[in-house]
Write a protein that binds this DNA or RNA. Structure first.
Lengths: 118, 118
DNA sequence: GCATATGGTTTCCCTATGGGAAGCAATGGG
DNA sequence: CCCATTGCTTCCCATAGGGAAACCATATGC
């Protein structure tokens, strides 16, 4: 299955509890749609409306909140084109793109895990 | 930084949206302390009280909820020793242990990411 | 003039979540 | 007889998250 669990355990034992790397990552990926937003953007830049549709219609407020938060944390960039009607494109930064490793691990795990219905 | 982002993007594009592997993983890792519980257990079995202390005192109610949920999803096992006072030991299953790949990716990312203060 | 399209923002509200405190079981020890 | 210990469980409350809907800006098409 996974790689060598023993090495991982060693690294994890090292990670001092208060504010370890995992906790910092969790803070970035916090919130209901955050991780899925990144999933969508890993396949390329997208507009606000495209994201909304692809995710299955989260409320505009929530989506805005998440995008703003991710922008503030340098995970993605927000580009406004002064057209009418307006066009806003969201795109992952280098930092944001590097989250792909985590998402990929999640994808692999989720696909092999027999899911118990809640 | 990460591995080849292009391959990952391809895999991600494949993943059909409704209930893809990532979403299933997110469902398992849902809740405030869930991921950190797994971090603690990756270094070996722990008792209820040990977990509570290591995590920084989440409420007993919340910790119980998380542990029950993870047990139900076959991520960990709960062993009660009929002693007085009681002793309850939590240990990751094979499935739970395999989450280590995800946590490891989070650890690496978090350590290299310059964190913006919220 | 007015509707339409787009990407928001803002306000209001409801639910879910998580925390705190207290109770409880069971037994050995003082 | 009472207390301490451990791992809950139950109840209650405060907060935060997230959804619905209304509003705004602007230029084009009718």
């Amino acid at each position: 299955m996974g790689s060598n669990g023993t090495d991982i355990a060693a690294r994890l034992a090292d990670a001092s509890r208060p504010g370890c790397g995992i906790e910092r990552t969790l803070k970035v990926l916090d919130g209901k749609w955050t991780t899925l937003i990144i999933r969508e953007l890993l396949t390329g830049p997208k507009r606000f409306g495209e994201l909304r549709t692809a995710l299955g219609d989260p409320s505009a407020k929530t989506l805005t909140d998440r995008l703003r938060s991710l922008e503030h944390q340098q995970i993605l960039t927000r580009t406004v084109y002064a057209e009418v009607p307006p066009r806003v494109v969201y795109e992952l930064t280098e930092q944001g793109h590097s989250l792909g490793d985590i998402l990929y691990a999640m994808l692999v795990w989720g696909e092999t895990h027999p899911l118990e219905d809640a």
